[in-house]
């Protein structure tokens, strides 16, 4: 087994670096820039039961060391996704995690049923943390009861690992994480974007068409690390996938030291398309330099003195 190989529950990854949902499509565009099979895995843009056009423009605004986005889960729907994107994902040569979202439980159930028989899918990421949709996003992800009952509803429908992507907007992320695990989640992904807003004071209008948007980028890294550490401390046996503000290898290593078994690189890719590969290389060098037998040994290796 390669030094870089890690496991997230039963999902084996050739290295701990995945690309985060919404930042990479299914990989077609960035696949023109580098070999996707070098990645630990791809988490697809969230797919929903019906096609979604997405939110009104403007959808983006840059903020200090970060960005706001309110895309609104624009996607062609599960039917087209299976027909057009699955054949592509079948050949990417890395782990494939399909992100799903819905307005009601039945949407999630239908999505899991449709994805369950597809062999190339290694795990399903349940997105209950999108700040840019009215129903099913934060409304689900901030309620421990809803998260537990949603995951419990989906659990019997597939043998594939269920990852639950958590919002940093919840008052107590460990409570939500524990609820997901009680429902049958195999891993927790943290964090999704933080709800944010910007205002054009001259025109007295919000910068984003949908008013609210999700904050990502280096600005949120400290928040993400705190959430990963909180989850790992509360649920030491549950694999965590660390997401948030990864812009260089050291950021990914920080996530792993805080307790993440793997990481997802998100909007940092927009600045540096080759970032996932740089992070993979950096993790290998870190293991070498600090005598870690393998990347998996970095997980939770944070030293807390006193």
């Amino acid at each position: 087994m390669s030094k870089l190989a890690v496991s997230v529950g039963s999902v084996r990854l050739k290295n701990p670096v995945l690309v985060a949902s919404g930042c990479f499509g299914v990989g077609r565009e960035y696949g023109e820039l580098f070999d996707l099979s070098l990645l630990g895995g791809i988490v697809t843009k969230t797919v929903t039961r019906e096609p979604r056009a997405g939110n009104p423009a403007p959808r983006l605004w840059e903020t200090p060391s970060g960005m706001l986005n309110s895309i609104g889960l624009a996607n062609p729907g599960i039917e087209v996704f299976i027909e057009k994107e699955i054949p592509f994902l079948n050949d990417v040569g890395c782990a494939v995690v399909v992100s799903i979202a819905g307005k009601v439980f039945e949407d999630f159930e239908e999505l899991v049923r449709r994805l369950d028989p597809i062999e190339c899918i290694d795990a399903i990421e349940i997105n209950v943390s999108c700040p840019n949709v009215k129903e099913g996003g934060l409304a689900f992800g901030t309620s421990p009861e809803t998260v537990e009952s949603l995951v419990a509803t989906l659990r019997p429908l597939t043998a594939k690992p269920l990852w639950v992507k958590l919002t940093p907007d919840a008052t107590d992320i460990a409570l939500i994480g524990r609820s997901a695990v009680n429902g049958g989640a195999d891993a927790l992904c943290a964090i999704n974007t933080l709800t944010g807003m910007e205002i054009d004071v001259g025109r007295r209008v919000p910068r984003i068409g949908n008013i609210f948007a999700g904050l990502s980028g280096p600005a949120i890294r400290p928040v993400a690390l705190a959430k990963v550490f909180t989850l790992h401390s509360a649920l030491p046996d549950i694999p965590i996938v660390g997401i948030g503000g990864i812009s260089e290898a050291g950021d990914a290593i920080a996530h792993m030291l805080a307790g993440a078994s793997a990481v997802q690189v998100g909007s940092g890719i927009f600045r540096s398309p080759h970032l996932p590969l740089e992070v993979i290389r950096g993790i290998a060098e870190y293991c070498e330099f600090f005598d870690f037998a393998g990347a998996r040994d970095i997980t939770g290796a944070l030293i807390i003195e006193g």
Partner: peptide
């Protein structure tokens, strides 16, 4: 012209409304 994040078509941030949708 539009604000862009990825520039390659992955993020769908620079949407413009056309007769064929965004």
């Amino acid at each position: 012209e539009e604000h862009m994040a990825c520039g390659v078509g992955a993020c769908q941030g620079c949407a413009v409304l056309t007769k064929d949708g965004y």
